[in-house]
Structure formats: structure tokens, C-alpha cells
Design a protein around this nucleic acid. Structure first.
Length: 320
DNA sequence: CGCATTTGACCAGCGC
DNA sequence: GCGCTGGTCAAATGCG
């Protein structure tokens, strides 16, 4: 949807022929949207980290790093680091999808301020508190059930950075190795498909994700992650990655370099920096999905939930 | 029985 | 101020 001010750039065979990027500001935030059209991509051409180092922000590298094959799957991704740009990015993703088979599009929305991203990283001041504290605990008097939300009033609402992926998938629930519990579902305006809300089931982990199907392209699923996992991937994945990935796939990258977001993350200076004061980065993605791209190719149902962990800080683009 | 999902209600923020 | 909408809660229900 060009009316968002986004343009396209094309990427062929490992070289960017044309990169176009535009941005918009939404209440202090700036959204970035990158679109990549590719006909042939060599996943081994460049690592994700390489891309990060070589360019300010190349989402095309995402696809490369992840080994995405535009011919087998389409992935749109977007990041946001502030407060409420999600809906827009959803629109972008959905719009961009229209008839673009064989393309890999990435959308990036980021906050103009990295500090906001990092600061807001772990604690979702608005919701995690709500979530973290047992609603009933403050018991309150009257509406002890739902009235406690109001108590967070005075505080400045600050959302955690979000990272959204738009994927071609038949299933709504994409597997990313973590366990999620659905805690809500809402009808999406202008869309016959509902949006589902999930929360990481790991205690103290405030990561949430939203999953909705694109109205314009029902075969497209938009997954938005919010927050950072402060724990390693569950070792016992029930009906999750463990069940979907052959044992051979759950092994360290044979190439010694990242081919999956988790690994990529570990090589990102910014990511390490960000993780330093919150979770053991080294263990965060200990469970390897390095051959993840294979899975992507085979199942066309990639879920890069963990990307949200790195992109917000790593891909942040600071406005001039 | 424990955990996950469903679903209606509630709340906050925003636009008019 | 009011209505709309997104997001969340939590009781009820389902499932293994």
C-alpha cells in the first residue's frame, strides 16, 4: 500500500539492486518498511550479522539469514518500538501481500529512540504489571475482578518493542519453540478473521503475541510479538518445535554461523548489550533451530517469534 | 486433575 | 462527554 509512503526495493541473487525505504512518524515513533522482492536468494551468501554490519538496516538480509526462500514462503516482518503502531503495520503487511506471490517483504517499525526500546524491553509497564500481579490480589473491593486495571492509570504507558511477521501459512498458530497460552480473542475490524492473543506460559515471562489472519489474503497470518523472552527455549516442547523439528534439526548450526534468528542474535553486539541487564543471553537461544530454514522451506510456516528479541534494538534506526 | 481454550465482560486510550 | 476499538481478565468449559 503505497499510501503509507512505503516503497519497494528489489533484491536479486544476494545483491540489492535497489533499496527503498520510507518512514513515518506516529506519535514519536518512526516506522520503517522495507520491501524485498527477490527471485533467487542464496541463503549462504551473507549472514544476518553481516548484513547488519554492512547496512543500516537490511531486511533483505533477514530473509537471507533465515534462509527464507521467496519461492516457498513469504515473510513480512515489522518492528516497532513504541506505542501503538501495530495496526498500521498490519495494514501495511496485509496490503503489501496482495498478489505478491514470490516476494519476501519486511516491514520495520521502530522507535525513534532506542532508549525507549531498551527501557521498555522487559517490563511492559502497562500490562506486565497488570499481568504480573494477580488481579485479584489487590482485591479490591468492589470490582476486584477487572477493576484493577484502572490502578495503573497514572503511569505512562510504554509498550515493549514489537516485531511482526506476516507469513503465508495455513495454520494460525505458528511454532516457534515457545509455549503459548491463549488468553483472548477479538474480532478484527474490517476483517472476518479474529485476532488471537497469546502469552508465553513460562513464569515471569511477559512476552505476548498476537496472531491474526490477513483479511485481504486469508492465506497470510500476521504474528506480532511483544517483549522479550527471559528464559531459554522450553526443553520439553509439547506439540511445539520439538514435535515439528526432527532431532537433527534441533542441533547447533553446522556452519558455525547463524542461520536462525536465535543464533543470529547471539552474534549481535547490540543484542548482547541489551540482554546484559536482563536475561542470560547465552542461554536464551541455546536450543538451536539453526536448520530452521529447512523447516521454512518445507513447511512454509516459519515463525520468527524470537526475532522480536533482536530486531527492536538491533534494527533500530534512529532518526537524524 | 491439571492445563489450555473459549468467551463475554470490563477497562483504557483515542477520536470526534 | 461519548462512543469505538484494542487489549485483558477470568469463569466456564474442554481435553488429555
Amino acid at each position: 500500500m503505497s499510501d503509507h509512503g512505503f516503497r519497494d526495493f528489489y533484491y536479486h541473487g544476494g545483491a540489492f539492486n535497489n533499496i527503498d525505504h520510507d518512514q513515518q512518524s506516529y506519535g514519536g515513533e518512526t516506522d520503517h518498511m522495507y520491501r524485498v522482492s527477490s527471485s533467487s536468494i542464496d541463503p549462504s551468501y551473507m549472514s544476518f550479522t553481516d548484513c547488519l554490519h554492512s547496512t543500516s538496516m537490511d531486511y533483505g538480509s533477514l530473509e537471507k539469514a533465515f534462509g527464507l526462500s521467496p519461492t516457498s514462503s513469504e515473510v513480512f516482518s515489522s518492528v516497532e518500538g513504541g506505542n501503538r503502531t501495530m495496526m498500521k503495520q498490519h495494514h501495511v503487511g496485509a496490503d503489501e501481500l496482495g498478489g505478491n506471490t514470490g516476494e519476501v517483504t519486511a516491514t520495520l517499525n521502530s522507535s525513534v529512540s532506542s532508549s525507549s526500546t531498551e527501557a521498555g524491553c522487559e517490563e511492559d509497564s502497562d500490562k506486565s504489571k497488570k499481568d504480573g500481579q494477580p488481579k485479584g490480589s489487590d482485591d479490591g473491593g468492589e470490582s476486584s475482578k477487572k477493576g484493577n486495571k484502572a490502578k495503573m492509570k497514572g503511569e505512562k504507558k510504554q509498550r515493549e518493542p514489537r516485531f511482526a511477521f506476516v507469513t503465508k501459512s495455513e495454520v494460525d498458530q505458528l511454532e516457534d519453540g515457545y509455549r503459548w497460552r491463549k488468553y483472548g480473542q477479538k474480532a478484527v475490524k474490517n476483517s472476518p478473521y479474529p485476532r488471537s492473543y497469546y502469552r508465553c506460559t513460562t513464569q515471569k515471562c511477559t512476552v505476548k503475541k498476537r496472531v491474526e489472519r490477513s483479511f485481504q489474503d486469508p492465506s497470510t497470518v500476521i504474528t506480532t510479538y511483544e517483549g522479550q523472552h527471559n528464559h531459554p527455549l522450553p526443553t520439553t516442547l509439547r506439540g511445539s518445535a520439538a514435535g515439528l523439528f526432527p532431532p537433527s534439526m534441533l542441533t547447533p548450526s553446522p556452519l558455525g554461523r547463524p542461520s536462525f534468528p536465535h543464533e543470529l542474535l547471539m552474534q549481535m553486539p547490540n543484542y548482547h548489550h541489551q540482554m546484559n541487564n536482563q536475561a542470560p543471553a547465552g542461554s536464551m537461544f541455546a536450543e538451536n533451530f539453526s536448520p530452521f530454514h529447512q523447516y521454512v522451506h518445507q513447511h512454509q510456516v516459519p515463525d520468527y517469534g524470537l526475532l522480536q528479541d533482536m530486531v527492536p534494538s538491533t534494527f533500530l534506526k534512529h532518526e537524524p
